[in-house]
Protein backbone atom coordinates (compact mmCIF):
# COMPACT_ATOMS: atom_id res chain seq x y z
CA UNK A 1 0.00 0.00 0.00
CA UNK A 2 1.12 3.54 -0.74
CA UNK A 3 1.67 5.95 2.12
CA UNK A 4 -1.51 8.01 2.43
CA UNK A 5 -1.42 11.59 3.68
CA UNK A 6 -4.77 13.09 4.55
CA UNK A 7 -5.74 16.54 5.74
CA UNK A 8 -9.17 16.98 7.29
CA UNK A 9 -10.32 20.59 7.56
CA UNK A 10 -13.45 22.44 8.53
CA UNK A 11 -14.70 24.45 11.45
CA UNK A 12 -14.67 23.60 15.13
CA UNK A 13 -17.66 21.48 16.16
CA UNK A 14 -18.06 19.70 12.80
CA UNK A 15 -16.34 16.62 14.15
CA UNK A 16 -13.41 16.91 11.77
CA UNK A 17 -10.84 15.98 14.39
CA UNK A 18 -12.89 13.10 15.75
CA UNK A 19 -13.15 11.67 12.24
CA UNK A 20 -9.39 11.97 11.77
CA UNK A 21 -8.71 10.20 15.07
CA UNK A 22 -11.21 7.43 14.28
CA UNK A 23 -9.59 6.75 10.94
CA UNK A 24 -6.05 6.65 12.32
CA UNK A 25 -7.01 4.65 15.38
CA UNK A 26 -8.90 2.07 13.33
CA UNK A 27 -5.92 1.75 10.98
CA UNK A 28 -3.58 1.03 13.90
CA UNK A 29 -5.77 -1.09 16.14
CA UNK A 30 -7.89 -3.00 13.67
CA UNK A 31 -5.83 -3.07 10.51
CA UNK A 32 -2.33 -3.41 11.95
CA UNK A 33 -1.10 -0.41 10.01
CA UNK A 34 0.95 2.53 11.23
CA UNK A 35 -0.74 5.86 11.58
CA UNK A 36 -0.09 9.21 13.19
CA UNK A 37 -2.62 11.94 13.79
CA UNK A 38 -1.83 15.56 14.61
CA UNK A 39 -3.95 18.63 14.74
CA UNK A 40 -3.57 22.37 14.79
CA UNK A 41 -4.54 23.80 18.13
CA UNK A 42 -5.98 27.28 18.38
CA UNK A 43 -7.19 29.16 21.43
CA UNK A 44 -10.91 28.71 20.65
CA UNK A 45 -12.74 25.51 21.57
CA UNK A 46 -15.55 26.05 19.05
CA UNK A 47 -15.66 27.73 15.66
CA UNK A 48 -12.61 28.88 13.73
CA UNK A 49 -10.76 26.81 11.16
CA UNK A 50 -9.63 23.39 12.33
CA UNK A 51 -7.23 21.03 10.68
CA UNK A 52 -6.12 17.53 11.47
CA UNK A 53 -3.45 15.57 9.64
CA UNK A 54 -3.39 11.80 9.34
CA UNK A 55 -0.70 9.67 7.77
CA UNK A 56 -1.37 5.96 7.24
CA UNK A 57 1.36 3.63 6.04
CA UNK A 58 2.67 0.11 6.29
CA UNK A 59 6.15 1.30 7.20
CA UNK A 60 7.12 3.48 10.16
CA UNK A 61 6.16 7.14 10.05
CA UNK A 62 8.64 9.68 11.33
CA UNK A 63 7.75 13.22 10.23
CA UNK A 64 4.15 13.38 11.46
CA UNK A 65 2.77 16.44 9.66
CA UNK A 66 1.27 16.52 6.19
CA UNK A 67 2.76 19.12 3.90
CA UNK A 68 1.16 17.92 0.65
CA UNK A 69 -1.90 15.74 1.21
CA UNK A 70 -2.97 13.22 -1.40
CA UNK A 71 -6.40 13.35 0.19
CA UNK A 72 -7.85 16.66 1.34
CA UNK A 73 -11.24 17.08 2.96
CA UNK A 74 -12.61 20.63 3.24
CA UNK A 75 -15.91 21.17 5.00
CA UNK A 76 -16.02 24.97 4.95
CA UNK A 77 -15.27 27.56 2.30
CA UNK A 78 -12.66 29.09 4.60
CA UNK A 79 -10.88 25.74 4.94
CA UNK A 80 -11.11 25.12 1.19
CA UNK A 81 -9.69 28.50 0.27
CA UNK A 82 -6.89 28.06 2.77
CA UNK A 83 -5.89 24.50 1.99
CA UNK A 84 -6.65 23.66 -1.66
CA UNK A 85 -3.26 25.04 -2.78
CA UNK A 86 -1.41 22.41 -0.70
CA UNK A 87 -2.94 19.36 -2.33
CA UNK A 88 -0.55 17.00 -4.08
CA UNK A 89 -1.15 17.38 -7.83
CA UNK A 90 -3.61 14.74 -8.92
CA UNK A 91 -4.74 14.12 -5.34
CA UNK A 92 -8.31 13.77 -4.20
CA UNK A 93 -10.22 16.74 -2.80
CA UNK A 94 -13.51 16.02 -1.02
CA UNK A 95 -16.04 18.76 -0.30
CA UNK A 96 -19.73 19.16 0.44
CA UNK A 97 -21.45 21.61 -1.96
CA UNK A 98 -23.61 22.82 0.91
CA UNK A 99 -20.53 24.46 2.42
CA UNK A 100 -18.00 24.81 -0.40
CA UNK A 101 -18.05 26.28 -3.86
CA UNK A 102 -15.08 24.75 -5.64
CA UNK A 103 -12.54 26.35 -7.94
CA UNK A 104 -12.00 24.82 -11.33
CA UNK A 105 -8.29 25.55 -11.61
CA UNK A 106 -7.30 23.04 -8.91
CA UNK A 107 -5.09 20.17 -10.07
CA UNK A 108 -6.96 17.48 -8.18
CA UNK A 109 -9.77 15.01 -8.53
CA UNK A 110 -12.49 17.00 -6.84
CA UNK A 111 -15.38 15.05 -5.38
CA UNK A 112 -18.39 17.12 -4.39
CA UNK A 113 -20.53 14.92 -2.19
CA UNK A 114 -23.86 16.08 -0.82
CA UNK A 115 -23.13 14.49 2.52
CA UNK A 116 -24.93 16.96 4.76
CA UNK A 117 -28.14 16.81 2.76
CA UNK A 118 -28.10 13.01 2.67
CA UNK A 119 -27.55 12.82 6.41
CA UNK A 120 -30.38 15.26 7.11
CA UNK A 121 -32.75 13.55 4.64
CA UNK A 122 -32.14 10.01 5.79
CA UNK A 123 -31.14 10.36 9.48
CA UNK A 124 -32.11 13.88 10.41
CA UNK A 125 -29.23 14.33 12.88
CA UNK A 126 -26.37 16.63 11.88
CA UNK A 127 -24.19 15.12 14.61
CA UNK A 128 -23.24 12.15 12.38
CA UNK A 129 -22.20 14.33 9.44
CA UNK A 130 -18.53 13.62 10.21
CA UNK A 131 -19.12 9.85 10.20
CA UNK A 132 -20.76 10.12 6.79
CA UNK A 133 -17.72 12.04 5.58
CA UNK A 134 -15.46 9.35 7.02
CA UNK A 135 -17.45 6.70 5.14
CA UNK A 136 -16.82 8.57 1.90
CA UNK A 137 -13.10 8.91 2.66
CA UNK A 138 -12.55 5.25 3.42
CA UNK A 139 -14.50 4.21 0.32
CA UNK A 140 -12.61 6.61 -1.95
CA UNK A 141 -9.20 5.71 -0.53
CA UNK A 142 -9.74 2.04 0.28
CA UNK A 143 -7.55 2.58 3.33
CA UNK A 144 -9.50 0.63 5.91
CA UNK A 145 -12.68 -1.42 6.21
CA UNK A 146 -15.93 0.11 7.47
CA UNK A 147 -16.12 -2.53 10.25
CA UNK A 148 -12.88 -1.22 11.67
CA UNK A 149 -14.41 2.24 12.07
CA UNK A 150 -17.50 0.70 13.66
CA UNK A 151 -15.32 -1.11 16.20
CA UNK A 152 -13.72 2.17 17.23
CA UNK A 153 -17.17 3.75 17.56
CA UNK A 154 -18.34 0.86 19.73
CA UNK A 155 -15.62 1.68 22.25
CA UNK A 156 -16.74 5.27 22.49
CA UNK A 157 -20.51 5.33 22.14
CA UNK A 158 -23.45 3.84 24.00
CA UNK A 159 -25.17 1.06 21.98
CA UNK A 160 -28.19 3.29 21.33
CA UNK A 161 -26.10 5.51 19.05
CA UNK A 162 -24.54 2.76 16.98
CA UNK A 163 -27.32 2.36 14.42
CA UNK A 164 -27.33 6.00 13.53
CA UNK A 165 -23.56 5.97 13.07
CA UNK A 166 -23.59 2.77 11.02
CA UNK A 167 -26.20 4.32 8.77
CA UNK A 168 -24.18 7.53 8.38
CA UNK A 169 -21.04 5.61 7.50
CA UNK A 170 -23.02 3.66 4.92
CA UNK A 171 -24.46 6.82 3.39
CA UNK A 172 -20.93 8.14 2.96
CA UNK A 173 -19.82 4.93 1.31
CA UNK A 174 -22.77 5.03 -1.09
CA UNK A 175 -22.19 8.66 -2.01
CA UNK A 176 -18.56 7.85 -2.74
CA UNK A 177 -19.54 4.91 -4.91
CA UNK A 178 -21.94 7.08 -6.90
CA UNK A 179 -19.38 9.84 -7.35
Amino acid sequence: MERCRIVFSGSGGQGVITAAILLAEAAVIEEGLNAVQTQVYGAAARGGATRSDVIVAEEEIFFPKVLQPNVLVCLTQEAYNKFYPIIRPGGMLITDPRYVKIETKVDARQRELEMFRAVMDRIGKPIVFNICMLGAVIRLTGLIRPESVMKMLERRLPPAFMDMNRQALQIGIELAEAA
Binding site: E25, N34, V36, Q37, Y41
Partner: peptide
Amino acid sequence: EVVGHMREK
Protein backbone atom coordinates in the same frame (compact mmCIF):
# COMPACT_ATOMS: atom_id res chain seq x y z
CA GLU B 1 4.10 19.90 21.99
CA VAL B 2 4.33 17.72 18.89
CA VAL B 3 5.15 14.54 20.79
CA GLY B 4 2.71 15.46 23.58
CA HIS B 5 -0.28 16.04 21.34
CA MET B 6 0.40 13.72 18.43
CA ARG B 7 -1.44 10.40 18.42
CA GLU B 8 0.25 7.16 17.42
CA LYS B 9 0.53 3.56 18.47
